[in-house]
Design a binder for these strands. Structure first.
Lengths: 221, 221
DNA sequence: CTCCGTGGGATTGTCAACCATCGACCGATT
DNA sequence: AATCGGTCGATGGTTGACAATCCCACGGAG
């Protein structure tokens, strides 16, 4: 993600996209609020074109719905769907990716993971949830990218923003250090190129995204 | 999907999108081929705006990749990723959706499903694979929409075109009548509002998307 | 002969101004 | 009270232009 030109320039569209995504995450835009093209383009000093495209992207990331001639409205994500749909999908993606990445990733790639781990540690020390979450997701994205499978990556790109919002919302109930520890385990397992071990650690890691106060993922009854 | 205005008008963007999606499916555009905005907009008699947006959507559907200043290229979808990623995701989506839809769908909704079933039958009689696949996916989409969960639907929208291509590619190895039968079973199970039965039929239905000539989903070794 | 830098040419990214179309709202009429 | 118009705000789409970037072929230097 975050497509850059070869010089490292971000496209206008990307800037708008990231701004809005972040402002939705932090709650500057609340669920139900309308996003008006003209207002945004003026505020961000760009034309309507890039804003339109950014809004469409947000729609594909499930952060927004847009209805013809009525525009885009910020969506909220129910815990139910995150826990029963998005997280299981994530598990599918990552199980597959970690298995492939095991065989494909280089020491250099592992270095990238170590970097995220370091950022995570720093974030935990500062008690900076956002930094921890950022590095957390980045860590997983690197592995998914490392699997070299385009479609897996494609799905990831469409779900991670919602997962990030979820983490930000509930992450304060977790011990940040334990998040770091789990990723250290993941990295170790990967470096050991031990499939079974990796899968075990991964499942444990993903299956417990949040010590939910809810009884379970239980049915209505 | 297929957002219409209240008068039933399709937006320009939708028209372009559906044209391209279909032309990719039928192989008019082959994997690796470039999609050039100006050429497409001229061919379809529209301006570049809607074409750009349609291309972005295709990207979100995994039919295309686009790199800044280099444009969009048709992607192909490996059987591996369909079978090991997209289909499992589909199973997640549908297990969840069918369970919810069971409680939410009205007799009217079931009527819509019956309609698709009828179209499927007709397609099978004419030995028209494309019609069968169309009705097949539409059937499932109705149930997913019937679950009333936006994010589930959102993910579905991003994966069905790839699944459709896969079905079109390998569907000729299947007995079309058996596809119809399976959906009749699904509809019956839904109408009976029997969760256990529905889940059983569904899993059987999705788990065998194609009598693959490959040994299994097996690992490399 | 190969390597490297340069310059078009092609294509995408963005801008700006404009108009048609639609949905929501409001007030007047029945 | 329900319905009909009209207005208004916002989106959908158009045009034409220009800037930014990539690709590649060409040609000079080593």
């Amino acid at each position: 993600m975050a497509w850059r030109t070869e010089n490292g320039q971000l496209s206008r569209r990307q800037q708008v996209l990231e701004t809005l995504r972040s402002e939705i995450m932090t709650g500057r835009y609340e669920p139900g609020e309308r996003l008006i093209e003209a207002a945004i383009s003026e505020e961000l000093g760009t034309s309507r074109g890039p804003v339109r495209e950014a809004l469409r992207q947000l729609e594909h990331e499930g952060l927004v719905v847009s209805v013809p001639y009525r525009g885009a409205v910020v969506l909220d994500v129910s815990d139910e769907e995150v826990q029963e749909v998005l997280i299981p999908i994530r598990l599918t993606l990552e199980s597959f990716s970690f298995a492939k990445a095991l065989e494909l990733m280089t020491e250099d790639d592992f270095g990238e993971l170590a970097k995220q781990l370091w950022l995570m540690e720093e974030g935990a020390r500062k008690n900076d949830l956002q930094q921890v979450v950022e590095a957390d997701l980045r860590f997983h994205e690197i592995v998914i990218a490392g699997s070299g499978r385009q479609h897996t990556m494609q799905v990831w790109r469409s779900i991670w923003p919602r997962i990030r919002n979820y983490f930000i919302r509930y992450g304060r109930f977790r011990e940040l250090d334990s998040i770091v520890d789990e990723h250290r385990e993941l990295l170790d397992a990967l470096r050991g190129r031990d499939l079974e071990q990796t899968m075990a650690v991964l499942e444990r890691h993903i299956a417990v995204p949040v010590p939910s106060s809810r009884p379970a993922v239980g049915e209505k009854r």
